[in-house]
Design a protein around this nucleic acid. Structure first.
Lengths: 350, 350
DNA sequence: TTGTATGCGTTATCAG
DNA sequence: CTGATAACGCATACAA
């Protein structure tokens, strides 16, 4: 807290909100009845219920969340935990989708979404303290890297937690929602080989993210199944610039490549750009497959063949899982895996 | 979770968090002294302070926010209000920047950021009820359209509110932070005319957003100053696809255009794409200027001349303004306008 | 400087 | 079904 040594005046409140007491008075019932009418309404006469309902709109009554929390020992909110470095880079395109999806799942609930961005280093201590402090009823953790091992300790705190994207440690049984990244990579390999390409390479993602690792493994598996050599594997950082760089390195290493799988659409855009600058025709000379079905995939006017990644749906599923987990403490929901689907567009046309 | 249900434990809590009472006991002081030590620490002996500090780490004490809120009448959180339709479209690229910026401003505070996405229609009633209900200490409203007039009523509720982007109604004196969009549009016009282009046109943004209107007005003003005709004005929706469509319409209407100002980079990308598909060389035949300096401006391998839009900085400034407004109730901070700057790249090279 | 006593608004308990 | 009444954890006015 800061040195905000203001006067006893609490805050800038116009007129104090009506309390349950006021409401009960206006409705001609007791606080208890009013409270029951507001909540479950299970043991309230229709008459009393109606009176309270009327008083609510008349007074514009809103329950005081703090007071309610204090006694129910529920915060009425869930946290969306985002390791900050990600937000700056790879998360950018997904930010909106994740937030909207989670929000959608929370819409019918009275749970509020609070954002928790945690820096690397000792700020994570602050974050975890907040999470353990009972300030939220649950947490959704997104985009977690291998180094962010502290988040996995959340499972042991008893705080309902759901991951978006498979965590590194699945032993702890933390529920998560993810795309079938392995299958996505495999589909890319199958598609390119099926289109008659044989000099294949991939621009993979960071090795500290399970999504990147899974896509790569699936890709390699697909190549094996097609009877093709593994081919070059270059690692990028999921960004457009990173994809462009990686493509340049790739062309130096394997000039005869005729098919490239980039593990993100942003990287794929960079790849296409580099290819064009080097004078390679896409898709005639080199076919390109991306990943995510990002809304900007058409930015180069080509249409990008890609693996769909319904992030909003995945986030919504994670939200629902969390809501369930909060409602049924002790039960660990099973992970949910969304199937991967290939979307064929111009960048890999035969 | 253990099955140790000796008491009617309300929720899934492992071990109950230590309370101020526990802390005081461990530190050998009274609740009051412990409380004072935790907060201002103004009237606490060094000895007592040390004892409390030690007890805090020993017990892992975290203040109960609900209890504190109840008595201080402060929520300890601020809302980021986002009209949902925007999030799906124009907001996408800015989402991360806005959130990170606001978060940055709140970092040193103990304020939490809660997200409030409001649908059109009666959901706004729920949102405004939440905001007026004292559940947050302040609000930041982003990207508000003309139809979202309800948000402007927030100013009258006494809830400290800051807009990101100039609101339609500036009469109410609601503080806001914005880019100098007018000057940005003017810079675009000046740049293109200065580059020898004379058949100029613009793809403007939605007419219900002040940013779009201001950019257009600045553009027209710039053309006047350069002694040029206003030229065609086509309206897009700030998206890539919208920009591509608008460009097609523009080419039909004014085939001899040699300079286009798109009011967003995403639209500019669509414009460049359409131009290329129609066989127009960029920038040789048609120069293109965008707006935002979006990280994807280079997606087409060209480099986009654009007006920088430091969204994270703007959002951070809004956050600081809000923090100030909360600390000093009653004082309406002055609006903050960031200067516009042109970034020249390949799409408008002479 | 410290401790005591009170109340914040709500839900839960337990008699009527 | 209803209404008193007791917590919930914390910050303060007041007394010491």
């Amino acid at each position: 807290m800061n040195a905000n040594s203001s006067r006893p005046a609490p805050a800038a409140a116009g007129r104090p909100s009506p309390t349950l007491e006021d409401l009960a008075l206006a409705a001609g019932v007791s606080r208890s009845t009013a409270s029951r009418a507001i909540n479950g309404g299970s043991k309230v006469s229709a008459q009393a219920q109606a009176a309270v309902d009327a008083a609510i709109v008349a007074l514009g009554y809103t329950p005081n969340r703090a007071a309610r929390s204090l006694v129910t020992r529920r915060a009425g909110s869930v946290a969306l935990v985002i390791p900050e470095p990600d937000a700056r880079v790879m998360m950018d395109p997904y930010f909106a989708a994740v937030i909207m999806g989670v929000n959608e799942a929370l819409r019918e609930t009275d749970l509020q979404l609070v954002l928790l961005m945690s820096r690397a280093g000792d700020d994570s201590a602050r974050t975890i303290r907040y999470l353990r402090g009972g300030h939220v009823d649950g947490a959704i953790v997104v985009s977690h890297h291998r180094a962010d091992d502290w988040v996995e300790s959340l499972g042991a705190t008893g705080l309902p937690t759901v991951f978006i994207g498979r965590p590194w440690d699945t032993e702890s049984g933390i529920p998560y929602v993810d795309l079938d990244n392995f299958e996505g990579g495999r589909l890319a390999a199958r598609h390119l080989s099926g289109a008659g390409r044989s000099k294949l390479a991939t621009i993979a993602g960071p090795t500290d993210m399970t999504a990147a690792v899974d896509r790569l493994q699936g890709w390699l598996q697909g190549l094996r199944e097609a009877g093709l050599q593994p081919g070059p594997v270059i690692h990028g950082d999921f960004t457009t610039a990173g994809g462009a760089d990686a493509a340049a390195r790739l062309l130096a290493e394997a000039p005869d490549v005729d098919g490239i799988f980039a593990a993100s659409d942003l990287m794929a855009l960079g790849v296409v750009d580099t290819l064009r600058q080097k004078g390679r025709q896409v898709p005639d000379e080199v076919a390109v497959v991306g990943f995510d079905n990002h809304s900007l995939q058409a930015a180069n006017g080509l249409g990008l063949t890609t693996v769909a990644h319904p992030m909003a749906d995945i986030a919504a599923a994670a939200g629902k899982l969390l809501v369930d987990a909060i409602a049924n403490p002790g039960e660990l929901p099973e992970p949910v895996i969304y199937p991967a689907e290939l979307v064929v567009r111009g960048s890999s046309a035969a």
